[in-house]
Design a protein around this nucleic acid. Sequence first.
DNA 1: GCTTAAATATTTAAGCTTGAAATATTGCCT
DNA 2: AGGCAATATTTCAAGCTTAAATATTTAAGC
Lengths: 158, 158
Amino acid sequence: MTRAASATVRRDSDSKARLRLWVRLLRATRMVEAQTRERFKQQFNVTMPRFDVMAALWRAPDGMLMSEISRFLLVSNGNVTGIVDRLVADGFVVRAQRNGDRRTSFVRLTARGRSAFAAMSAAHEGWIDRLLGGVTAREAEQLSAKLKAFRSDWESDA
Amino acid sequence: MTRAASATVRRDSDSKARLRLWVRLLRATRMVEAQTRERFKQQFNVTMPRFDVMAALWRAPDGMLMSEISRFLLVSNGNVTGIVDRLVADGFVVRAQRNGDRRTSFVRLTARGRSAFAAMSAAHEGWIDRLLGGVTAREAEQLSAKLKAFRSDWESDA
DNA sequence: GCTTAAATATTTAAGCTTGAAATATTGCCT
DNA sequence: AGGCAATATTTCAAGCTTAAATATTTAAGC
């Protein structure tokens, strides 16, 4: 139980407040996810994981390694393999070799993938704007800043 | 395009701020989920969905209908069927009849399920307390309140 | 050059998730 | 009673997800 001796004093009520926050965070996230998943399916016949991969590739015109995609999206390597397989079948991305290294496979959007993503992305931004409409732009910026700092604490903690 | 005529004026920069907030919210949620999933697996050999169902049942000593569980957790009916099947196999919950209505099936925790959940739940609260340690209790309460109001906006919008 | 270790990607098994279709039961209406 | 809509759950196919195991290739040490 050496862990109980933390740098900061932890009160039980604090713990409860954080737990309540986490529960609300999770519920809010799931509601937005459910809404966007449904719209993606209905309007573009695409899943969120495929959109996420396309969004990552959009930012990297020269392409990304499979491992770069999984690191960026916080999902496992094996996961990305399947999603990219389906995106290839859709004609939205291609795999290519690079650097003469035959382990790696560079993935990038096709022309069709780029134009499809542009349309989806615009629609997506509109959905989020309406779904988070209860939050003012100013609040959104404050919350973003707070969430950005979220990670640092336990990055080192193993 | 009748939807474009909204009650409030929407600026493009606001939309970007909300989108950024959403991306950060999703990333933060996924990081906490990944951390807790791993700990649940390592320390209790349980998955998060199973923990979630047990948490719902913990609040309802008399049991819940399958449909009540799925509504509460925001997941589909068919999903709950499989999770409860596995919890039954684990010996953590039981199904029973009720009201003489043979369509419904009431699910409740077993004694073993209750004691297992008590241990998991305490550990879980500690993990969250540390993972969200960068947020003060006061901030946590403010954010919770903000997120609570989240839903109402688009509940009616279909 | 040979051996070992590291890096990269895929495969596999188990489980989660959805939406739609199928099944079973109840209660209402005539 | 018979028919039929409403309710509750399960089944199913497709896809997502992880962790672990397996290749495959590259780089490093000697």
